[in-house]
Structures are given as C-alpha cells and as structure tokens.
Design a protein around this nucleic acid. Sequence first.
DNA 1: CACTTCGACGGGCAAATACTCACAAAGCCT
DNA 2: AGGCTTTGTGAGTATTTGCCCGTCGAAGTG
Lengths: 319, 319
Amino acid sequence: MNAGRFSPDAVRLDDAARAGWLYYVAGNTQDEIARKLGVSRQSAQRLVAMAVSEKLIKVRVDHPIARCMDLAGALSDRFGLASCEVVPSDPDAPDLLTGIAIAAAAELERTLKSPERRIVSLGTGRALKATVEQLPRMSCPQHVIVSRLGNMMQDGSASPYNATISLAERIGAPHYPYPLPVLARHPAELSAMRNQEAVQNTIRLCERADLSLVGIGQMDRSAPMFLDGFASAAEMDELAALGAVGEITSWVYDREGRIIDCAFNERVASAPLPRAGERPMIAVATGEAKLPAIRAALVGHLVNGLITSEATAERLLAG
Amino acid sequence: MNAGRFSPDAVRLDDAARAGWLYYVAGNTQDEIARKLGVSRQSAQRLVAMAVSEKLIKVRVDHPIARCMDLAGALSDRFGLASCEVVPSDPDAPDLLTGIAIAAAAELERTLKSPERRIVSLGTGRALKATVEQLPRMSCPQHVIVSRLGNMMQDGSASPYNATISLAERIGAPHYPYPLPVLARHPAELSAMRNQEAVQNTIRLCERADLSLVGIGQMDRSAPMFLDGFASAAEMDELAALGAVGEITSWVYDREGRIIDCAFNERVASAPLPRAGERPMIAVATGEAKLPAIRAALVGHLVNGLITSEATAERLLAG
DNA sequence: CACTTCGACGGGCAAATACTCACAAAGCCT
DNA sequence: AGGCTTTGTGAGTATTTGCCCGTCGAAGTG
C-alpha cells in the first residue's frame, strides 16, 4: 500500500469517482447516491460536482457533429471569435459549398426570425449566393438588406454572385444595393462618389448592421477577384508583391490581416471594413486555396465569426 | 452529398448531438442551448434527452477507485490473471452491463489505437454487444476483427448478440465472420467442415489474436445457450449431469474449468479455446448467476483476464 | 374533401439540482 | 494555548430540469 493511498484527499476523490459513476453511468439521482454512500444529499451533490471539476468524468459525444463542435471551440479560442460554426466535410468533396451554405443560412434565418427590425449586410461571392439559396422563403418586411459593395464594374456590367437582391426577393424585405461600382477609376473619383447622399446612407446602414455575412477571396490566380475581372493580372502581381493574401468585399489585406495601404485599396468603393467590431461580422468560406486568406482575416480580426468546413477548420488549426 | 445526409431524421440527430455537446461538454444550460439553436427550451430538453437515448453520449469515469483496484489485485493474485478490471457496482443494480461494457470498451480501444495491425477476436453475447456499443467510432482499417464462433444455428437462422459485425462496422476494419454454424449436427459433419480453407484460416487468425474478448455463459435454466436455443432442455440436463458449470464460445466446461469430453462439445464448431495462452484472452462477465461459471473459467485458466463488477468480484473472492 | 392519426411543440408544474451562507471542525502558525 | 485560515457541513433558496398534457399541423385514409 503506498503512502498517499488513504490520505483524506484520496479517499474523498474515490468517493467522488464513485458518486460520479453512480450519477452519470448508473443514472442515479443525487438523493439515491446520498443514501447508498451514507452521506447527506448536499454532500452527494458536492461529490458529483467534484468528480466533474476534478475532470474524473469524461464525456464524449459519438457523432460526426461532435468533432465539428470541438473544432469550432478551438477556433473560437485561438482567434477570439464571437461565433464559429464548423460543418462536417464530405471526405470526397471537402470544400463543397452546400454544407457551409446551409449553416450560414441557418444563422441568417435566426436573425431574420426576429420580429424587430434587423439590418443585414452582405458581401458577394459564390458562398453567399449559395447561402441565400438555402434560405427558405419567408416574409420579413420588417428587416433591411444592404449590400456592402457594388454590383458592377466600371463599365456598368453587373457582377454575378450578388446575394443581396436574391435575399431581399426571397424574404420580401426592402434592400439597398450598393450604389457604386466595385472600384473607382482613381482615388479622386472615389471621394467624389463617397459624398453622395445615397452612398453615405448605405454605408451608415452597413455600420449599423445587426448581422454581416461576407465571403473571403484568395489572391492567387484562382482569385474570384481576378476571375471575375475586377483585377487584371498585372494588378494581381502588384498586390502579391505587396504581400496580399486575401480580400473581403474587395478590401485587400496581408497575412496579418491588415488592409494594405496601396493604390488598389484606394480605389475600392466598398463599405469600410471595421476592425473587430461588436456586431457580428461573419465570414463564410472554405477551401484549401482560401486557407491563408481565412487565417489572415481571423488573425487580423477582420471578422469575428466564421462558418467553414471541418477540413478547412482542421487546416486552420494545424497551421 | 450522400442521400441520407440531409434527411429530417439525420438533421434531428445532428441537432441532438449538438445539443448534447453543448450540454455535457460545454456545460450550457438547456435554456442557453435553446437560445443558441433557436428553439424552445422544451425542444432543447428533448434534443438532449434524445442524444442520451440514442447513445450519442458516452460517459466514463477516469479514476481508479481504490476498492475496485484492491479487488482487481486480489483476483489477479488468486487466479494468476494477466489483467483484471473491476468496475463499481450500483448496489441496486449490481449486474448492470453498462459499467463493464465501458471498461471493456476502454481496453479494446487501447488495442485499437495501435498504428500497427492488430487482430482482435470476439465471442458473442450481451456483454460483448454492449461493449461494442460503448466504443467510439474510429477509423482503424489496419486492424482485423475475427469471430471465434458461428453466428447461426443449424437451420441457418442468425444468432443475436453478434458483436463482430458491429465492431468492424464501427471502426471500419475488415472482419472475418466465423464461417460455420455454432454446432454441427454430428462430429463427422464437423470434421468435414473444419477442413474448409476458410475455416482453417479463420481459426488461425483466432490463434494469433492480439486481444480476445469473450463472454461467459452459465449452465442453469437462465443460460444464454439455452435461452437462445442452441441447446435443448434435454441437452442442458445431460450437460449438468456431466458437471457442466459454464461455457465460453459454446465450449462447455466443468467446475475445474476443464472442457468436458462429451457429445455436445464434439459438435461445437467454435475456434478452439487455448488453455492459458500468452495472448490476452479476457472474459467480460458479471452477475450472481454466472459466478460458478466465472470462477471455473478462472481456475481452469480458460481466460487470463477478467472484466467484472465490484459485486461479482467480491463474491468470487469470498467463495 | 373531411376525418383520423401521429408526432412535435410549448405552457406549466413538480422534482431535482446548484448555489449561498453561516457555522463548526481540523490544521497551522505564532 | 490561542487565534487564524482552510475545509467541510447542513439549511435554505434559486435555478434548472423532467414530464404531463392540451394544441396544432402534417401526413395518411376512406
């Protein structure tokens, strides 16, 4: 028999383990445990509580979702997120948008269910488009949908993946498209544009949004920004040289999540991106290619929420 | 996305898992869960209850309870066991399988965690079935699961309590069902069966198993063997007259743990039971009714490991 | 199309559980 | 020894949980 074996502490811990076993495994009530161990009910409660606080009780949830919640918790801790959701990946198609779109739609739906007026601001992109498609039709004339960035290029042609209009249509809410192109031709033009009453108003709405959903764009040659023609190859190279790793509503940032001070960003007409606000600003993004962009956005607190896939969450934590 | 992924049931189960995680792992109250998931408190309660009833929640107590360790040590000494585990009993339900199933699952898990290939052989019975249910899902394609005995009666109907298939499914490992019925009709038939290539191969796997878990059957009128229809009342009487007190994978033995030389055993098709091998052969059994059967198995070194309950351990040592 | 059945929902309530507080016993320092 | 801190205890109370039951809507049926 070793020394500490019967020390008061050890005996008490044994009792705690026994109480914890009777409670969690055998399903007794604390009253029954008290009777069986011959102590008062309050003591039994304390023993059970001790078993928990001393980590004697290990609980695990045996469902794929559980792993996702573990990952979500870890991401929240690591990056100080107010909200984080991780969706199971299909191993064969880990970056399918459907999963995160469903999760993002659920988040959106919760906000829209409110009877009080809510302002929802949206970015653009495939992920958000898919999100809106997952939202059931509902009637919410009390809310307002506002776009955080323009819908067209300098030449007036419309950008695809505009989620604002579809969302507003789907839920029957008034909406505010962003009344500017994505990029101004030069900084001077931009400041003139910004003075317009409608623009000011829209930006104010964005600032007051009760929920904002944005996509995250990577900065390599598969960048949405490049593919959709908002930036030329030359511009992409230039940005890459400045350390750009990602963009949110066209604001280009570096690997620390700092909006880069450069010619391109000086032409970005989108609503300003507040750093780490109080209000939910949630990124909806997944995919190997977007990893550096997502990581930087989290590090720089450009967003305080994330909806992503299991595979991406794992990579984010590993890196 | 596979078919069932978004079926209503699956979604509900996901929510249940989520609720269970938030409740048991994250320590939320049901009210908080309700708010987070956007449902009423009552629904949250139902989800948590479902997570429990669907066995999504696994609890184990991580503490060597002194009394149980004493009993385990005493049993090991007395019967020369290589391993012995005693789990606390609930005084009002001393023979609950849950407790020993959790312990056996933990043992099994230790073996399965190995990156090298392991061969695990299993018997049948309620205890083993419960054990497999306690095992978390994991991915172990490197291991092999093999059954020590058949899964069906002479007429081809399947026996319940088959643990091999569930285990193999749960961990995604290849498995070898035992390619014979439990009993042959007569010894001649048996020796013909034994010559089959598949049978030889399966038996060899059993002999090389790195871990074997078996149940223990008593031989009175509550015998699993009798209740499940593998032996008639007449056969049971005959065996009792020959001094049978228990059976392991259908091999019937007497109170000294000797396999009885009799007509019944000559028809048993199960893999041979090596006496006191080097490799772990662990019995998972508890209950007043099984006492003589367990004691004899230990005395005769039919097994070299035991997982049982506190109450049973005490009785074994007392007798 | 009306009717029945079934399952889910949420309100309400009683039981179970967690927390607070005041007190007493035990260890500890001076 | 005496005061001090620490730790456990029981009583009382607030919170949380489990369950019953009436209601409602969807799906099935004649």
